[in-house]
Design a protein around this nucleic acid. Sequence first.
DNA 1: CCTCATTCCTGCGGGC
DNA 2: TGCCCGCAGGAATGAG
Length: 283
Amino acid sequence: MPELPEVETVRQGLARWFVGRTIATAEVHHPRAIRRHLPGEGHFAAVLAERKILDVRRRGKYLWLPLDSGDAIVAHLGMSGQLLCQPAEAPDEVHLRVRLRFADGDPELRFVDQRTFGGLAVSEGGADLPAEIAHIARDPIDPDFSDAGFVAALRAKHTEVKRALLDQTLISGVGNIYADEALWRARLHGARLTDGLTRPAAQRLLGYVREVLTEAIGHGGTSFDALYVNVNGESGYFDRSLNVYGRESEPCRRCGTPIRREPFMNRSSYSCPRCQPRPRTRG
DNA sequence: CCTCATTCCTGCGGGC
DNA sequence: TGCCCGCAGGAATGAG
């Protein structure tokens, strides 16, 4: 499940293989993959032809590729999206959605996405920061992220702390896996209320979020199967370092208490019943 | 303005 | 053996 560390790993791979190269053609194999590009397939292909990729940038889980036209390709991997660096002779993947061929030949860039939650779009004039993702907050790895601003905004909200961590307009890049891991490190249950956190507690939590994301980047991200891979099709190995996510009934690595799984927003939350007691009031 | 439930999608695996 | 159903989940959307 691509969260910030996985997307950052992909960004680094894309930068290595595609910066400075000129797109020859763009092929759309599935319309849903560019549903956020409102002008449609023909326009998508037309504005990308003969454009040079200048950089690969990231905010949270979004990537964008500034072009020499001043536009940018915006990409989100969703649940199962992959951006792959492939030789032209490699057989098409079953879920190949978009292919970019380059003027200088191999390798080509393929967007492959089984569940089609992800997609690509061209942002007009979006090279600096696409307007489509301007509402996404900076992520905690961004040097311009404001710790004090985050702490204040978090405590100003009236919601559960895990919901807040998943709110990409408050802090970006955190998904279900890293939210659970950061809350475990902070010894906080995700149902704790944001306006009940002290300033130091909020700052500590942010520190753990940043810590777990940074460690995961160092491991090339997390993967449970072959669905998430870097541009070379390789899986990360941070999953070996997870302390709670996916570890229901296994012993907490701090206290040995079996990890519990609870329903949360049509998915699951994992936590230690002893290290992270449920708040007394409210769900 | 704010919070929160719903919806999109497909493959896998458990249960019967 | 094969079918059905639950589950995985990021973010846009609309309801309240």
